[in-house]
């Protein structure tokens, strides 16, 4: 199984990872190799098998509705690349 250049670029954009034109070939090769490995899944018969999303058969634990987190903005923003007046800044977003 091989993956097309177009697919690599489609997936790279979905994942927001820039793939330059000189990297494209390597990614295409690498991903195709992994896909060939992954294709071996189809040798395994799974007719009528329920998908398994969690390794345990447990139900969601629920917490009581209480405010337990005080303002920690300063600590939270210590590692932030760019903040101003408590806001995280990003290049202008146009809706």
């Amino acid at each position: 199984m091989s993956i097309s250049e177009k697919d690599v670029l489609r997936v790279a954009h979905l994942a927001r990872i820039r793939v330059s034109s000189d990297e494209l070939g390597d990614y295409q090769e690498g991903l195709s190799g992994i896909l060939s490995l992954v294709e071996q899944m189809h040798d395994c018969d799974t007719d009528g098998v329920e998908p398994m999303a969690h390794p345990q058969d447990i139900q969601l634990r629920l917490r009581e509705d209480q405010v337990t987190e005080p303002d920690q903005r300063d600590a939270m923003q210590e590692s932030a690349p760019q903040v101003d007046e408590g806001l995280y800044l990003v290049p202008r977003v146009i809706e």
Binding site: D65, R73, G86
Partner: peptide
């Protein structure tokens, strides 16, 4: 109309200063 957020213990009150009700989660 919960007091705290759906997946964290931060307050949901409206109108606080920016990011003062945004915990690690």
């Amino acid at each position: 109309m919960t007091q705290s957020k759906i997946f964290s213990g931060s307050s949901t009150a409206y109108g606080a200063s920016a990011n003062t009700q945004a915990c690690a989660v």
